[in-house]
Design a protein around this nucleic acid. Structure first.
Length: 267
DNA sequence: CGTGGGATCTCCT
DNA sequence: GGAGATCCCACGG
């Protein structure tokens, strides 16, 4: 376990030192552990890109509390991201965990990431028996199509597993998915050995090989303070997320209602 | 392989 | 009412 003092410094210092450390989460389903490869520092009141820049709200309250706790937020209507709070009480700085390597519990992590898109699959049991010839042909064609679809799905899952080693926790929302982190874990104490979510030092290299180099650059998707190089990552690590500079999203287009095409609602 | 659309929480204007 | 510290899938070439 990392001591609470580890998080006493500035988010910039803590961010660099967090690389290589391991975040692990125990649930009834088992344990998933992720070795961090990419993080970003957010300097609270002094940082226009920080959620705490404009002061305390219900959402960001834990950022203003003691260090060594999580700040988990929900964004874009579907994703969670997790931060670790730094600095003394009252200084709302934090480090966003952006990516890592799943080093334990990869099957569980993969299952979590597949679960969200599984469309409530059902078994094929209990099909009706004898059918008229024309209907039977139709049914056979449907069956063939379904088998094809299932083969394609299996193939995609296999290909997915191949890349899984570096894709499972690549990006802040994927990292949360893989670890099973949501708002219920907001405020969790990662320095408490009794906590289900804990941070510990990374494994030391077996030989006395040099520690991997750390690179730094601008933060991902940040529009304000884009000049500050407060993103840190392990140089050359394949689990580091793709760099996406800030691009304003196109507004939801106001479709002209007169073109009566509508009607295909909700897939 | 590159690209565009979609999902829909929380806070701020 | 709108933008954001995003990711995934469908689609066309």
């Amino acid at each position: 376990m990392l001591p609470r003092g580890f998080f006493a410094g500035s988010s910039l210092q803590v961010a660099a030192e967090l690389l290589g450390c391991v975040l692990e989460h125990d649930t009834a389903a088992g344990r998933v552990a992720v070795q961090l490869s990419e993080v970003e520092a957010y300097e609270g009141m002094a940082d226009p890109a920080s959620h705490a820049y404009r002061g305390q709200t219900a959402r960001n309250a834990v950022m203003f509390g003691p260090p060594g706790h999580t700040y988990v937020y929900f964004t874009y209507g579907m994703h969670f991201c997790v931060n670790l709070v730094c600095g003394p009480v009252g200084t709302p700085s934090a480090v966003l965990l952006r990516a890592g390597q799943v080093i334990e519990g990869a099957p569980l992590a993969a299952e979590r990431r597949l679960a969200r898109r599984r469309p409530a699959g059902r078994g094929l049991a209990g099909r009706a028996g004898a059918a008229a010839p024309a209907e039977r042909e139709l049914a056979e064609r449907e069956l063939a199509e379904r088998e094809l679809a299932e083969r394609e799905l299996a193939e995609r899952e296999r290909a997915g597993r191949e890349r899984a080693g570096r894709e499972l926790a690549r990006g802040p929302a994927r990292l949360c998915q893989a670890l099973g982190i949501d708002r219920a874990l907001d405020g969790a104490d990662v320095c408490d050995p009794a906590s289900s979510l804990r941070i510990r030092p990374g494994p030391l290299p077996a030989d006395a090989s040099p520690l991997p180099a750390v690179s730094r650059g601008p933060r991902v998707g940040v529009s304000s303070a884009a000049d500050r190089p407060w993103r840190f990552w392990l140089t050359g690590d394949p689990t580091v997320s793709d760099y996406r500079p800030y691009v304003p999203r196109a507004r939801p287009k106001a479709v002209s209602p007169s073109a009566g095409e509508g009607g295909t609602m909700g897939r």
